[in-house]
Nucleic acid binder design. Structure first.
Lengths: 245, 245
DNA sequence: TCAAAAGTGTTCTTATTACACCCATGG
DNA sequence: CCATGGGTGTAATAAGAACACTTTTGA
C-alpha cells in the first residue's frame, strides 16, 4: 500500500450554488471571503469534506450551516480539478446546486455566513477561485434540469400564481414565454392543485393560487411520466431537430 | 494553513466507462483485477490522479494506456465519494465515459491491460468497488447525451450504413426504432455525407455508405443547432409531456 | 373610471407516428 | 430463383406557435 501513499495528500471540497428566486430574478447566494485566499472577494459557499462524510452530506451541511435549511433540492453537477485551482495544494471540488425558497432563508449565525448575500445570477461577473466557471456550469445544468423535472417549484413559496411560475421559468430559461401557451401546458400536466384561493392586497384582479401536487407527481413518475418543458424558440431562429420514432 | 492539514490525506481517482459497439451490442471494456482489493473481479479501468494532472488528462491517460487511443469522445459524468467505497482510505472517484470505435482498439502492452475484455453492457451484473453503480450512471448519461448531441458516430467506423446507425441507437436507447422514420429524420438533419459507395461482399442488396459531416455540424452548432433524438415511445405508454412555447 | 395584471380559444403549421411493399445483390 | 436486408411514401394524429380581447380588482 505504500506505493500509493503519495496519492493520499490531496483534499476535496464541495461548492454549492444556492439558487433563489425573488423579484422576478434568479439569484445566487454568495459569501464575501473573510480570509485568504481571495480575501474580500465573493465566492460560492463551500468547505472541505470531512473524512467521514459523504459528498451529498457535505453539500447539505454547507447549505444548512449557511441558511438553516434542510431537505432541499440538491443536485451534483460537475467536479472541478484543475491542478492549480487552489493555492493550498491539490484540492478538487465537487459542485452542487440547490434550490431554496428565498423567504425561508434566514441568515445563520455561523461565522461563514456573516457576509452572505443574494446576487442576481446575471450580474455576477467575477468570483474567487474557479467559482465563476462553476456558477456557469450549475446555471446551465439548472436550465436543462428544469425542463425535465418539475423542480422549479422548489424556488417558489408553497402557494404561487401561474404568472409567478411563468416568470420563474422565464428567468431560468432566459427567454420569454407565451402566457396562454404556458398556462395551457402547465395546467394540462395536471400537476397543479387549484387552492380556491386568490391573492390579496394587489391593485389589480387577484390571481388564483396553486400549489405543486407532489404526491401526484410521484404517482406519475412511477407510471413513467415524462415532464418536458422546452426552451422557448425565438421566431427568427428555425430550430433543427431530429426525433426518431 | 495547518488547520487544514487533516484534509490533505485523501486521494482521488478517475474511472472510465469505455463504450464500444460491436455485433449490434453496446459493450464496455472491463479489466480483471490482478491485485487486491477485489482481486480477480471485473472492474472499470481507472487509476489515481497524479498530483500534477488535471482530471480530464487523467481520464484520457487511463484510456490511452489501455487502448492506445487518443482524441476520443470523453464526458465527465459524476463523482462518487461514499466514505467507505475504497479499502485503502478515503478515495473519491470521478467517473467518465468515453466512446471508441471498437475496431481501432488494440490491446496495449501495459500491465493493466493484460486482462481487458469487452462485455455487453446488458450482461454486466457485478463489478468491483462501486463500479457497477458507476456503470449504470454512465450508461444513463450516454442514453441522454446521445439524444442531444450527435455523438453516436463516435462508436461507428468512419463509414457506415444507415442500418448500422439505427442499430446503434437501438442498442443505446434500448428500444426499437421504425426504419422509415429513422431514415427520414437522420437524413433530414443534413449531417450525413453520402459517400457514393456501397457495401461489398454482402449477400443482399448492398447498402449505401455515409459518413458524419463534422464540419457541417460545427457550422450548425455555431448557428444554434439543436440535435434532438427522442426516446422511442411504445404505443401503449402514453407520454405526458409539458412543453411551453 | 382608470390602471394593472388575470384569464381565456382558435387557427395554422410542424412534427410524430403508423404502416407494407418493391429492389438489388450474392449464393 | 430465392433469401436477405436495402430502400422508399403517405395519411392521420398530436403538439407547437402565433395571436388579442375581456375580466376583475384596488386606487
Amino acid at each position: 500500500m505504500t506505493e500509493f501513499d503519495n496519492f493520499f495528500k490531496s483534499a476535496f471540497t464541495v461548492d454549492n450554488v444556492i439558487f433563489g428566486f425573488d423579484e422576478g430574478d434568479l439569484k445566487v447566494l454568495l459569501i464575501k471571503r473573510g480570509e485568504a485566499p481571495y480575501m474580500g472577494q465573493w465566492a460560492l459557499p463551500g468547505y472541505f469534506v470531512y473524512p467521514n462524510e459523504d459528498l451529498d452530506t457535505a453539500a447539505n451541511r454547507v447549505l444548512e450551516e449557511l441558511t438553516g435549511l434542510r431537505h432541499v433540492y440538491l443536485e451534483q453537477v460537475k467536479t472541478f480539478g484543475a491542478v492549480n485551482r487552489h493555492p493550498f495544494g491539490r484540492v478538487i471540488t465537487v459542485a452542487y446546486f440547490s434550490l431554496v425558497k428565498i423567504n425561508d432563508y434566514k441568515l445563520q449565525p455561523a461565522s461563514i455566513a456573516r457576509k452572505a448575500q443574494w446576487h442576481p445570477v446575471s450580474e455576477v461577473k467575477e468570483l474567487a477561485f474557479d467559482h465563476f466557471e462553476i456558477l456557469q456550469s450549475c446555471f446551465q445544468r439548472l436550465k436543462s434540469s428544469v425542463r425535465w423535472r418539475p423542480i422549479g417549484f422548489e424556488l417558489l413559496p408553497p402557494h404561487f400564481t401561474l404568472t409567478e411560475l411563468q416568470h420563474l421559468y422565464e428567468a431560468i430559461l432566459e427567454t420569454e414565454l407565451d402566457k396562454r401557451n404556458f398556462r395551457k401546458k402547465i395546467l394540462g400536466m395536471d400537476l397543479l392543485l387549484d387552492l380556491d384561493q386568490t391573492q390579496e392586497g394587489v391593485a389589480h384582479r387577484p390571481a388564483k393560487l396553486y400549489r405543486f401536487d407532489r404526491e401526484k407527481y410521484l404517482r406519475f413518475q412511477a407510471e413513467g411520466f415524462n415532464f418536458e418543458l422546452k426552451e422557448g424558440q425565438r421566431k427568427e431562429v428555425r430550430k433543427r431537430r431530429m426525433e426518431a420514432v
